[in-house]
Amino acid sequence: MEAIGLAVAGYLDVVVLSTPPPPWEDPSLFAQQVLSGIASGSLFAILALAVVLIYRSTDVLNFGQGEMAMFTTFIAWSFMTQMPLWPAFFLTLLVAAAMGAALERLVLRPVEEAPVLNAVIVTLGLYTIFTGLALRVWGPLPKGFGPFTLDFLFFEIDLAGPVCAGEVCIGKLSVATFVAAVIIMALLFVLFQRTMLGLAMRATAQNRTASRLVGIPVGRMLSVGWGLSAAVGAVAGVFVAQNVGLSTGSLAAILIFAFAAAVLGGLDSPVGAIVGGLTIGVVRNLAGTYVPSEVGSVDLVVAFLLIVLVLMVRPTGIFGRRALRRV
């Protein structure tokens, strides 16, 4: 855990000062740390959305989610060497969705009726397989990946560089990550709360026998859940890789926090994924800044302590309606 924490701290440029002044003496430092926390929290949030999506639609936690996202980001990288950004991006989403659906059909379907632990082990297997495949296809060297310039027909947005208000800055890429997370959350909310497909997916996750009895094609719902989740994971991967670089390990480190974010916010709640992600990002950053460094690296400890406390009060997470029954 420590090693992963340090790795993430390195990636995300957590600023650790030796003796920081208290927030009221240097409000802009405080504001900066909150913003940086939101920046890293957005990364956790966007991957947490993929975790929530798969949990809500299939009742499984996918421990291979990070590596799947990494793999599809490599695919995006390959596409981008062949074609412009937007076609490459949307093609990646399609490939990811097809890959997710195929995985469910070929790898998870056989263990569907078996105890849930089998599914967990299978998702752990996915982790290994995708790492191995990526190493084989794209090699061990990190790839340059963004930040990109987004062409919106009438205007362009260069994601490189910061936007600042006075002394306080945040990367444009972080703003874009945050916006993307909110858009995905809104889409998922509409899917789950306002559409028959979403309702059928929730029903399937909850009770497969009853779902079959009302006529829901359960297998198809599970495939759709995995496909959508892989697509959301691909979006997450594309943003994370622009922030921390594209290599085989780059998403595994984030996934720990994405899981934490999803648990904190409520595993079945898209809104919870975002709030959980941002909360963990900010709390980690503030703890890293303001807890005296003689105590050691406490950012992770404080973040996870917060999760334990929240879960003691609300076992379903902040926004969740369903406690974690199966892992």
């Binding site: 028959m196 309702l199 059928a200 929730r202 029903a203 909850q206 009770n207 026998t209 009853a210 779902s211 009895l213 009302v214 006529g215 829901i216 309606r321 369903r322």
Partner: peptide
């Protein structure tokens, strides 16, 4: 053919309305 299964097997996390709506899924 509709079955009311043993032990009811309703969707406990969904609302009454959502359960009924799912009954008409087909």
């Amino acid at each position: 053919i509709s079955q009311v299964p043993e032990g009811r097997q309703i969707f406990t996390d969904l609302t009454v309305m959502e359960n009924l709506r799912l009954g008409a899924y087909t």
